[in-house]
């Protein structure tokens, strides 16, 4: 089976293969088979997954078989996402096709991969300990996550904390970081050398764009990480930096609100989350300056290393 780095593949080759039989893409810990005749999907994959491998030959298991296809509309071209023959979402504008692929992949993982307890949270690691950042949209989670990655923290995921219930370890799933609205320009200025994907305007989430995962995070995608902290971040314009311990019981309740599939795991899922808040440092974190936030996280990691 001939595997090729996406970065070494001409865009038109990838595009042609996507539009015909489709491509298998290694997105650790998954293999995804993708088909799409939409140019923006090919462009997004080419730019955002440049460091990953693809192949065309059948014969290997794919965790998900997905397709993003164009639906002709009289006035406004649309696209739709299919996973293993199911169409879970209503169609979106054609310009959102790559974002739809990313959202669709998240749906596949949270909908089918119940051997993990999945939380809506970013996860990064430094010095052998991972920080879990659960937060609602608009909290500045992805901006903080991208900045931490560029600052030397290993990205496990921007969206999904995948906890192995048998070990409590976090499984990496490093995929492009989803940015929205103001964070796009902030990070474009802050990280001018980090590639960004196609920009989708006027989505339900506003303007959406993705940021490429760095090479170190991809190279270490097979390394699980031990949770060290659960930090609930909140960006607040002009606010002084604040890192305050949070009650464990309250944190557990907040985590369960961010869990996609706790119900599937029953008591075991409850125990996993209870163990998580018991064993980690749990904090509320408010920031307005990214550099201050990075220094604070570095200090936490240094304390952990010294302990």
């Amino acid at each position: 089976m001939k595997r090729r780095l996406i970065a070494d593949t001409p865009l038109h080759t990838l595009q042609a293969q996507l539009a015909s039989a489709g491509v298998f893409v290694a997105m650790p810990p998954f293999v995804v088979h993708i088909r799409s005749g939409i140019a923006v999907v090919a462009e997004g994959l080419h730019r955002m997954y440049a460091g990953q491998h693809w192949w065309a030959e059948e014969g290997e298991f794919a965790d998900f078989r997905v397709e993003v296809r164009a639906r002709r509309r009289w006035l406004r071209p649309m696209c739709e996402f299919q996973a293993d023959g199911l169409q879970p979402f209503t169609p979106l504008a054609l310009g959102e096709a790559f974002a739809m692929l990313e959202w669709g992949l998240n749906w596949c993982i949270t909908g089918y991969c119940h051997h993990w307890l999945a939380l809506h949270a970013a996860v990064l690691e430094r010095g052998g300990r991972a920080v879990i950042l659960p937060a609602p949209p608009g909290s500045g989670k992805s901006t903080l996550c991208a900045s931490l990655m560029a600052h030397g923290w290993r990205l496990l995921s921007d969206e999904l904390a995948l906890i192995d219930p048998s070990t409590g370890l976090l499984t990496p799933c490093p995929r492009p970081i989803s940015l929205k609205n103001a964070s796009i320009d902030i990070l474009r200025q802050r990280l001018p050398h980090v590639p960004m994907g196609p920009v989708a305007h006027d989505t339900l989430k506003g303007t959406v764009c993705h940021l490429q995962v760095n090479a170190d995070s991809l190279a270490r995608a097979a390394e699980p990480a031990m949770p060290g902290w659960v930090i609930f971040p909140r960006y607040q314009s002009g606010a002084p930096l604040s890192l305050q311990p949070r009650g464990k019981a309250e944190a557990l309740l907040e985590l369960q609100r961010n869990a996609f599939n706790r119900h599937v795991h029953g008591h075991r899922g409850f125990e996993v989350l209870a163990d998580l808040v018991t064993r980690t440092g749990v904090y509320d974190f408010t920031y307005s300056q990214i550099d201050e936030a990075l220094a604070c996280f570095d200090a936490l990691a240094a304390e952990q290393g010294a302990a």
Binding site: G247, L253, H267, F270
Partner: peptide, 24 residues
């Protein structure tokens, strides 16, 4: 075994296996 609970200094959470409910 229907209910499990965890207790910390700041509070306690109980889990009902029957329907997945949590009680603070």
């Amino acid at each position: 075994p229907r209910f499990a609970f965890r207790h910390w200094d700041d509070g306690c959470v109980a889990h009902d296996e029957a329907d997945g409910s949590l009680y603070e």
